[in-house]
């Protein structure tokens, strides 16, 4: 090896004055999104076939103690999907207690904390974390857990390894994602509610708009319709204030070609579109 060339190359590649813009967790998140594309694609065909046959509506108890969005007027008893509008009616609050939710998420968290970098997600156990928000049915639940100092949160979906929806767990700083930047995957979306936002709706490519459940500064939106329509069409997350005025919208579809993980895709930072006043 020629050190007369190696030394200048080493010197030229010195990155001590070039801080990293992203972390390994960013890579992992993008990798997950890419994997979900394939999973969703595989599931979509069978889901469409099933949808053609199954028209039964599942009825779940309402979430009366935590109305999803003030003034939204969701009925006491909700269905998973309105047969006339197609709107996804969000699953009710999980029947599990907070302690049960934390206990079931703990095994995921134990494994997750073995990761070297956690995008500000911290490394402490979640025993003392609070449950901000849950959704669920008899077989599965998803929840947002928040650290005592409210600097970190975790998203936990436990379906005991079954599919539809799949287990998922992420843990990160509340500031890891920029305001209004939210992503939809095969399970829907979740995250931090930006300041001043009272309502978040998601409009899937089939033109159907469904509200997310907001509570305690976080939101959950469960949907298996993120692959409806053409996969490259936007899934709009629409953020509105208490008066119902749109503040901003963001294309939450991570499966388009501008995102890493899509074969042949490029990468650029997608930005929210703010409403003109």
């Amino acid at each position: 090896m020629s050190s007369d060339i190696k030394d200048p190359l080493d010197s030229a590649a010195d990155d001590s004055a070039q801080p990293m813009r992203h972390t390994v967790d960013d890579v992992v998140r993008r990798g997950r999104r890419g994997q979900r594309v394939r999973r969703i694609g595989a599931v979509a065909g069978s889901a469409l076939a099933v949808a053609g046959v199954a028209t039964a509506i599942t009825v779940w108890p309402g979430q009366s103690d935590h109305p999803p969005v003030a003034g939204l007027g969701l009925p006491e008893s909700t269905v998973t999907q309105d047969v006339t509008t197609g709107e996804i009616i969000q699953p009710a609050k999980s029947a599990l207690s907070d302690a049960q939710v934390i206990a079931r998420c703990q095994s995921f968290d134990n494994q997750y904390r073995q990761s070297a970098l956690k995008a500000g997600g911290g490394s402490e156990a979640i025993d003392s974390w609070k449950v901000a928000l849950t959704q669920g049915t008899g077989s599965w639940f998803q929840a947002i857990l928040v650290s005592p100092d409210r600097q970190r949160y975790a998203y936990c979906l436990d379906n005991t390894g079954a599919t539809g929806p799949k287990d998922d767990y992420q843990r990160q700083s509340v500031t890891a994602d920029k305001p209004y930047v939210v992503w939809a995957d095969g399970n829907g979306s979740r995250g931090v509610v930006p300041r001043g936002v009272a309502k978040i709706e998601f409009r899937t490519a089939d033109g159907i708009t469904s509200p997310a459940v907001i509570k305690d500064g976080f939101f959950l939106w469960h949907s298996d319709r993120t692959t409806a329509g053409r996969p490259t069409e936007p899934i709009w997350a629409i953020f509105s204030d208490a008066q119902g005025r749109e503040i901003a919208r963001f294309d939450a579809n991570p499966f388009q070609n501008d995102q890493v993980g899509v074969p042949g895709g490029t990468t650029f930072e997608r930005r929210p579109i703010f409403a003109k006043r």
Binding site: M20, D25, V28, G31, Q111, Y112
Partner: peptide, 18 residues
């Protein structure tokens, strides 16, 4: 990817990224 695998990947990526 299983979580154990993801932990392994994260360790690898942290070492390799720079």
């Amino acid at each position: 990817m299983r979580r154990r695998s993801e932990a392994d990947f994260t360790e690898f990526a942290a070492a390799a990224l720079r």
